[in-house]
């Protein structure tokens, strides 16, 4: 029983950076912009966050720095893609390339530095509950924050006017433009918010999850976050679940090993991706479902009738 509780706890913690970045990309994509630069953005944010934590000793300052760095890099992306109408895939990949190089370069002196260890946080009273205390209430605040954030994102997208406008921009930028909405600015705002969230995810990795900086340490999590948005059919709550599923599969596989059970890890790791394709096929095969789920203008540039 205790084992299971620990597995749940580890899964929540492993899913958190994925969920953070995934939520950011979800906002991006809801506005119709696909940002393949997430891996590079997370890396730059990870190094910025780690550097800040080293200087200030404050992890929230580090998250802020990560968010700032993420937003700055995605501002470049947004400017190119939204105003100069460059191709989104090529630009995103270029950002990724630049981000990995740049983070490695500015991080050279940060390698091997260590942060002051902060005590493991937990929720008073609740942490003493049997099973649940171990499983749910001995986590970093960011773990709870991301859950709240997913709720907030859902509320924003479906219950607020601004969210409606954002979705309209992603659905049909031309109609949104005709209605007088500043499509490009809205898209830029979504890109900045998305970059900032990817940035927090990067900083969480380098400051909390594995408190160290080494180049390339994001190790593909930016790409997984991209897959997650599809898996979740662009719904924040599903994205959160998806993040825990992706994180959980990795943890489960390591857990089983620690219990002496050997599995072919490749197939277990493959499962979420296969599931993503299946989900995509299911929603796409029905014209109504796809209209309900996928931002129709995803990846397509918008020219405001010049």
């Amino acid at each position: 029983m205790n084992q299971l509780a620990l597995l749940v706890a580890a899964t929540l913690s492993a899913g958190t950076p994925l969920a953070l970045a995934g939520l950011g990309l979800l906002l991006n994509e809801r506005a119709g912009v696909l940002n393949l630069g997430s891996e590079g953005i997370m890396l730059v944010a990870a190094v910025a966050g780690f550097g800040t934590a080293l200087l200030t000793g404050n992890e929230w300052a580090a998250f802020a720095a990560g968010a700032l760095a993420g937003a700055a890099l995605s501002a470049v992306f947004g400017w190119l893609v939204i105003w100069l109408n460059t191709n989104q895939y090529a630009t995103g990949l270029a950002i990724s390339l630049f981000g990995s190089g740049f983070s490695a370069f500015v991080g050279i002196d940060l390698v091997g530095k260590q942060l002051v260890e902060t005590p493991a946080p937990s929720v008073p009273l609740l942490r003493d509950l049997p099973f649940l205390g171990e499983a749910l209430f001995k986590q970093h605040p960011m773990v709870y924050l991301v859950m709240t954030l997913a709720g907030a994102a859902a509320w924003f997208l479906y219950r607020t006017r601004a969210g409606l406008v954002l979705r309209a921009v992603g659905e049909s930028p031309a109609s949104a433009h005709a209605l007088g909405y500043p499509v490009r600015r809205i898209r830029l705002a979504a890109v900045l918010a998305g970059g900032a969230l990817c940035g927090v995810a990067g900083a969480y990795l380098s400051v909390v999850y594995t408190p160290l900086w080494v180049e390339g340490m994001v190790a593909g999590r930016g790409w997984i976050a991209l897959a997650l948005t599809v898996f979740a059919t662009w719904r924040p709550a599903r994205l959160l679940l998806g993040a825990y599923l992706f994180g959980g599969v990795t943890m489960l596989q390591l857990f089983l090993q620690a219990q002496g059970v050997q599995v072919a890890p490749q197939f277990m790791t493959m499962l979420p991706y296969v599931a993503t394709v299946v989900v995509l096929v299911l929603i796409s095969s029905n014209p109504l479902w796809i209209r309900l789920n996928m931002p129709a203008s995803l990846g397509k540039p918008f020219f405001p009738g010049a």
Binding site: V76, T86, A90, T91, L97, F98, G101
Partner: peptide, 25 residues
Amino acid sequence: LPSALTGIFQGVLLLALLACDTLVQ
């Protein structure tokens, strides 16, 4: 020189090219 420069230069080249391409249109 550190190996990280390659990524930076490639990234800068591509971003600059994408930006400059605007001048074509």
